[in-house]
């Protein structure tokens, strides 16, 4: 009974998570070919042992070599990292005051505020990104409003630039930043702040010396929760970004669907995963530390 209980989800994940990833790795070592499926070499089980050794000999790291020589990929990886870092910073800048305000709000408001933060998370990601196209476009609501105010004469060009991508990321990932910071701030003992002020701290120093360090774990968790998915983001750069917005998720998509170069798309995926492993491990460590501190 127990064995069956383990076996079903175990084999499901082996077959639909681990094996597919091994296939990606295998294809990243092959060459592109004009065939169906469009890569070479291939090996069928019936062809036997000698065919297998031939097959293994034909695999090489050529695609990875290609990635390292072609400028496009370097730039795409670096620019994804840069966009992710900048966007995470701005999300923190916007998210922290909201989380702080929530943690200081009257107790009976908090469940409602909490629900208001979570609600957008349940709403379609695609629709939330789409909403910004109408706001940021040349004749969009933001430009209409600013021109009506008389702040600007000519419409600002925001849509299809990196600025629009930053706005999109901050907007869609904001709940991921707010929730961990809020849960750290909520636990904060207010008498600590009173003690700091009694001992002569100004409000600002008290915040900087007491509140900020005690919410550090929440800030770190929130930053990772925004940073990690942003690197591989596809929807936001392709809807809000322009032709100059280079992000690796978009490059992978185009390599696969437009150029039909499966081996290079697979190699892009393998390298992306290698890049992600470092922040993921750091995130896991931070979570573990949190759990130990609590337990």
């Amino acid at each position: 009974m127990k064995r069956l209980l383990i076996a079903v989800p175990y084999f499901w994940l082996l077959a639909l998570f681990l094996v597919p990833f091994l296939i990606v790795f295998k294809i990243s070592l092959s060459d592109v070919a004009l065939a169906r499926p469009p890569y070479f070499p291939q090996w069928q089980f019936e062809e036997g042992w000698s065919a297998l050794t031939d097959y293994l000999r034909a695999l090489d790291f050529e695609n990875f070599w290609f990635l390292s020589t072609d400028d496009l990929y370097w730039k795409a990886y670096l620019s994804s990292l840069r966009i992710a870092v900048v966007a995470t910073f701005f999300t923190l800048l916007v998210g922290f005051p909201i989380a702080y305000g929530m943690a200081r709000a009257p107790l009976e408001w908090r469940p409602t505020l909490m629900m208001l933060v979570i609600l957008p998370f349940w709403t379609s990601f695609l629709i939330r990104v789409y909403a910004w196209i109408g706001i940021l476009s040349g004749e969009g609501y933001l430009n209409q409003f600013l021109m009506w105010l008389g702040v600007i004469q000519d419409p600002l060009i925001i849509l299809n630039t990196n600025v629009a991508v930053y706005i999109g990321i901050v907007y869609t990932y904001l709940p991921f930043m707010i929730l961990p910071i809020y849960s750290a701030l909520e636990k904060l003992d207010e008498s600590l702040l009173e003690a700091a002020e009694d001992l002569g701290c100004s409000r600002f120093t008290a915040f900087w010396l007491v509140t900020f360090p005690l919410s550090k774990q929440g800030i770190i968790a929130g930053c990772f929760l925004v940073f990690i998915p942003t690197i591989g983001e596809f929807v936001i750069p392709s809807l809000l970004g322009g032709s100059s917005t280079l992000m690796i998720g978009k490059v992978l998509w185009e390599e696969f669907f437009n150029n039909r170069d499966w081996p290079v798309a697979s190699a892009v995926a393998v390298v992306l995963l290698l890049i992600l492993i470092i922040p993921i491990i750091l995130f896991q460590r931070n979570e573990q530390k949190n759990r130990e501190a609590e337990g």
Binding site: L13, I228, E233, G249, L252
Partner: peptide, 21 residues
């Protein structure tokens, strides 16, 4: 590991690997 990995896996990689499977 297989339970937690898909949570942080970029969607483009999950999609690509399943299609190839």
């Amino acid at each position: 590991g297989m339970i937690y990995a898909p949570l942080v896996m970029p969607e483009v990689i999950t999609g690509l690997s399943l299609l190839l499977l």
